[in-house]
Amino acid sequence: MPKEKKQELNVLLIEDDNNKAEVLINALDCSQYCIRHVATTGMSLLKQVEQLQPNIIIIDVESPNRDILDSLSILSTSNPKPVVMFSAQGDTETINATVKSGVSAYVAGGVDPERVRSIIDTAVAQFSAYQALKSELVKTKQRLSNQRVIDQAKTWLMESKSLTEKEAYHRIRKMAMDNSQKLEDVAKNILSLAQLLEKSS
């Protein structure tokens, strides 16, 4: 079987200290990773993250800029990125044991290239799995809430128009088809109308 060529990953390395950065760059296989090293902070860093759209970010665990990256995953205004953190201190192993969100992984600085690579690969894989799970969860939630809205609209129609459940459902479906709208959007309209009527009565 021919060797599958791995897709090159864009890596953004954030590090003020050039010596430290060099250790990491050397540890990473340049044929597999396209590494961009920046030493900026604050707003200029945020701009670079947005501009470069890296696949993965590597940052010192003690960097104040970590909160910028953390906020990108919490506020998810832009695409969250897997973040790998390195630390000169030995406490990274302990931290790793508890950080399993898939968003972050810790790596000790100056370890052998083989390990750095495997940690980064794992981080990317974990992150993708985590993101897939997260978006699945959002979809499920959306589905559930759509169903709830439709049920409420049905109930309102049944009570106010003395329809059977089946009739109420057909009514909503017909309106949706006539106006080429989604069922949940029709249901939402019915409910806001119901609210309006209740307020005025």
Binding site: R66, D67, D70, M85, T94, I95, V99, Y106
Partner: peptide, 15 residues
């Protein structure tokens, strides 16, 4: 400490 995220991770981990 220099970031809240790292402060949090370190407390979680017992560092």
């Amino acid at each position: 400490q220099y970031s809240w995220a790292t402060m949090r991770d370190k407390l979680h981990a017992g560092v």
